[in-house]
Amino acid sequence: MHGAATAGHREDGVTGPAPTPPAALLSIRALRVDLRAEGELRRVIHDVTLDVAEGESVGLVGESGSGKSMTARAVARLLPEGAVTGGEIVFDGEPVLTLRGAALRRFRRGGIATIFQDPAAHINPVRTIGDHLTEGLRLVRGVDAREAERRAAAMLGEVGIAGGERRLRQHPHELSGGMLQRVMIASVLLDEPRLILADEPTTALDVTTQSEVMALLSELSRERRLAMLYITHDLELAAGVCDRTAVMYAGAVMEVQRSAALNDGPLNPYTAALLAARPRVDARSDRLEAIAGRPRSAFEAPEGCVFADRCPHVEDACVAERQELRPLAGGLVRCRRAEELRGRLGHA
């Protein structure tokens, strides 16, 4: 990998992963991403495999450096300049990583819309809320200005903002953070996407506002049968909102399960450790079960299992070989001791 690698440049040919099941709207197979830092390539994602079905919401949970946001950026084709990718992302039957030109523009216009953590950074501060909401309708879909405004105001009502007509003439600084995130959701819904990528959409908000914004987002996406890939550091928040939850660590998906099962029956020791480390609102523990050391990024992860150096269940063989994601108990897990540890990992 030398010379001018561009964003989305593929390092290899087709790596031959399993064929995409027809049900998946979004299918990520053995995704690998290297970013250029200080003149060298650094691995930030080494193996992400994940499906999101039509109308399904999937949580992607991880600590800092886990690669969860970079996965979202790869899906949205928003990786930084010079990123090198491997593996495959297929959206609605089309490979995403190789899209170029008109096909890439079509993909960005229609299929996937992103909600970011900081809405203020993604709305032009000198233009009105109305400009922001109607721009796509007017310029991309050719809707006339009056009709675009009508639709935008109606959509503001949908996301719980009263007085839509008046709001359209306001500027971003006149709205609170929670309000702006609602505007973001409205603008995303106006795009009529099939998949929403929500990247920590409520992390900057107060807890009570977070609860409302998440309720809104899941209600509206359910009503419209929209799929959602929801990126967060908060396992319990993901579980409360998503049908399935994937847990990432050091650039790899460690486990995917139905959200309802994750809390009581984690399959991967990392998930179990994460659940046990979180203080609980309903009971104090004498001592939190902290995970020794700090979270690793993909490029500094150990050679064998990426969690081996912090795992309480590590054995010699774990250190020796990289683990693959494999099916277990209706979910997917990356741990060679998963069968043996099953049922012993859940916390009280």
């Binding site: 719980g160 009570t208 409302e212």
Partner: peptide, 18 residues
Amino acid sequence: SVPGPGWTPQRRQRGVHA
């Protein structure tokens, strides 16, 4: 508003103020 096992997000009301 605190997420936990069995938690689902709730909306206070439809139509809120800034």
